[in-house]
Amino acid sequence: MSRSPGCARCGGGRHDRPADARVPGVVAACGLYFLWLWGFHREVLETEPGDESVFGH
């Protein structure tokens, strides 16, 4: 099997760790989601697993 020459967009350079570039974005998205829950849906964060009052709307 032949190896690919690399990335055609950047002139043949290899990108060894493209997933590492997404980690800060995922962390930021999770942080924003947590802040949104904390600000607008606090009851979600204040319930315990197995709390029956959640199901009794």
Results as ranks from 00 to 15, higher is better:
residue 40 F to S: 06
residue 5 P to K: 06
residue 47 T to P: 01
residue 50 G to L: 01
residue 30 C to R: 09
residue 23 V to R: 03
residue 23 V to M: 03
residue 12 G to R: 01
residue 2 S to W: 12
residue 51 D to S: 02
residue 10 C to H: 01
residue 52 E to K: 08
residue 52 E to V: 06
residue 17 R to P: 05
residue 33 Y to M: 10
residue 48 E to F: 13
residue 8 A to H: 13
residue 21 A to S: 10
residue 32 L to N: 10
residue 29 A to Q: 06
residue 42 R to N: 04
residue 51 D to R: 00
residue 7 C to E: 06
residue 5 P to I: 07
residue 2 S to Y: 12
residue 9 R to K: 10
residue 7 C to L: 04
residue 36 W to L: 11
residue 31 G to R: 08
residue 27 V to I: 10
residue 45 L to N: 00
residue 11 G to C: 04
residue 45 L to K: 00
residue 19 A to M: 08
residue 45 L to C: 00
residue 24 P to L: 03
residue 5 P to T: 11
residue 20 D to R: 11
residue 11 G to R: 01
residue 34 F to E: 07
residue 44 V to M: 08
residue 35 L to R: 04
residue 13 G to S: 14
residue 32 L to W: 13
residue 40 F to T: 03
residue 43 E to L: 08
residue 47 T to F: 05
residue 48 E to M: 10
residue 21 A to Y: 10
residue 40 F to L: 07
residue 45 L to Q: 01
residue 18 P to Q: 01
residue 51 D to H: 02
residue 21 A to P: 05
residue 8 A to I: 12
residue 22 R to V: 09
residue 40 F to K: 09
residue 25 G to V: 04
residue 45 L to D: 01
residue 39 G to T: 12
residue 12 G to T: 03
residue 40 F to M: 08
residue 52 E to R: 09
residue 9 R to W: 15
residue 17 R to E: 14
residue 28 A to R: 08
residue 15 H to R: 05
residue 13 G to M: 14
residue 43 E to T: 06
residue 32 L to F: 07
residue 23 V to Y: 08
residue 42 R to L: 11
residue 13 G to Q: 15
residue 41 H to T: 05
residue 18 P to E: 00
residue 16 D to I: 06
residue 2 S to L: 13
residue 56 G to T: 14
residue 44 V to R: 08
residue 54 V to K: 06
residue 11 G to V: 02
residue 34 F to I: 04
residue 31 G to F: 05
residue 27 V to R: 06
residue 23 V to C: 02
residue 35 L to M: 05
residue 14 R to P: 03
residue 17 R to L: 12
residue 40 F to D: 11
residue 32 L to H: 09
residue 12 G to V: 02
residue 56 G to Y: 15
residue 19 A to Q: 14
residue 21 A to I: 07
residue 1 M to C: 09
residue 36 W to G: 03
residue 38 W to Y: 14
residue 4 S to E: 14
residue 54 V to P: 00
residue 17 R to W: 11
residue 43 E to G: 04
residue 14 R to I: 14
residue 52 E to G: 09
residue 13 G to W: 15
residue 28 A to L: 06
residue 57 H to W: 13
residue 20 D to V: 04
residue 39 G to M: 08
residue 2 S to T: 08
residue 53 S to T: 10
residue 26 V to T: 05
residue 49 P to D: 04
residue 22 R to E: 13
residue 51 D to L: 00
residue 31 G to S: 06
residue 39 G to H: 10
residue 3 R to G: 15
residue 30 C to W: 12
residue 15 H to E: 09
residue 27 V to C: 02
residue 50 G to M: 01
residue 8 A to R: 12
residue 48 E to C: 06
residue 32 L to Q: 13
residue 8 A to G: 15
residue 18 P to G: 00
residue 6 G to H: 00
residue 3 R to S: 15
residue 35 L to E: 08
residue 48 E to W: 14
residue 36 W to M: 09
residue 10 C to V: 02
residue 27 V to N: 03
residue 57 H to I: 11
residue 9 R to L: 15
residue 45 L to F: 04
residue 57 H to S: 13
residue 21 A to R: 12
residue 55 F to C: 02
residue 49 P to F: 05
residue 22 R to H: 12
residue 6 G to V: 02
residue 48 E to P: 03
residue 19 A to E: 14
residue 46 E to V: 04
residue 20 D to I: 07
residue 56 G to R: 14
residue 45 L to Y: 03
residue 4 S to A: 09
